[in-house]
Amino acid sequence: MSGNGNAAATAEENSPKMRVIRVGTRKSQLARIQTDSVVATLKASYPGLQFEIIAMSTTGDKILDTALSKIGEKSLFTKELEHALEKNEVDLVVHSLKDLPTVLPPGFTIGAICKRENPHDAVVFHPKFVGKTLETLPEKSVVGTSSLRRAAQLQRKFPHLEFRSIRGNLNTRLRKLDEQQEFSAIILATAGLQRMGWHNRVGQILHPEECMYAVGQGALGVEVRAKDQDILDLVGVLHDPETLLRCIAERAFLRHLEGGCSVPVAVHTAMKDGQLYLTGGVWSLDGSDSIQETMQATIHVPAQHEDGPEDDPQLVGITARNIPRGPQLAAQNLGISLANLLLSKGAKNILDVARQLNDAH
Rank of each mutant, 00 (worst) to 15 (best):
V237Q: 04
N171P: 07
D352R: 10
G346C: 15
Q181H: 09
H300S: 08
E89S: 13
K345C: 05
E250R: 01
L92C: 12
T269K: 01
V353I: 06
L30S: 01
A347S: 12
I318P: 01
A270K: 15
D230C: 01
S141L: 10
L100S: 06
P324S: 08
A320Y: 01
I323K: 03
G60V: 11
N88G: 09
L342I: 06
I350L: 04
H160M: 14
L234P: 01
S290C: 04
S57R: 11
V143M: 10
V202Y: 08
S37T: 14
T298H: 08
Q328M: 15
I53L: 12
P208Q: 10
A55I: 08
E117L: 10
G216C: 14
F129W: 01
V130P: 12
A214N: 06
D65N: 05
E223W: 01
F253T: 04
H239C: 10
I166S: 07
R116V: 01
P313W: 03
V38Q: 01
S96C: 07
R246F: 05
L338V: 01
L329I: 12
G218H: 01
G48M: 06
G280D: 04
R175K: 13
H305Q: 13
Y277C: 08
P159E: 08
L148N: 01
L338W: 01
Q204T: 01
D99Q: 01
G281P: 01
N118F: 10
Q34F: 04
I113P: 01
R167G: 09
L342H: 15
E117V: 14
V267L: 11
G287S: 07
S165Y: 10
V222H: 01
E306I: 11
E52V: 12
D228H: 01
L92A: 10
W198C: 13
P208D: 04
L68K: 13
V301A: 12
D311M: 14
Q275S: 01
D99G: 04
R195K: 03
P208S: 10
K132G: 13
I299A: 11
Q50V: 01
H300I: 10
P313F: 01
L68A: 11
E135V: 14
E258T: 01
V94I: 07
Q29N: 15
Y46T: 10
R150I: 01
P241A: 06
G168V: 01
R164Q: 09
P302Q: 05
H305T: 01
D289N: 06
L76M: 12
E135W: 11
S146K: 04
G131W: 12
A320D: 09
Q332P: 05
S344D: 15
V124H: 01
A31L: 01
I187K: 01
A44W: 10
T145H: 04
M295F: 07
E293R: 07
K62Y: 12
M212R: 01
G192T: 04
I110T: 05
E306N: 15
T145K: 01
H83A: 12
E80Y: 01
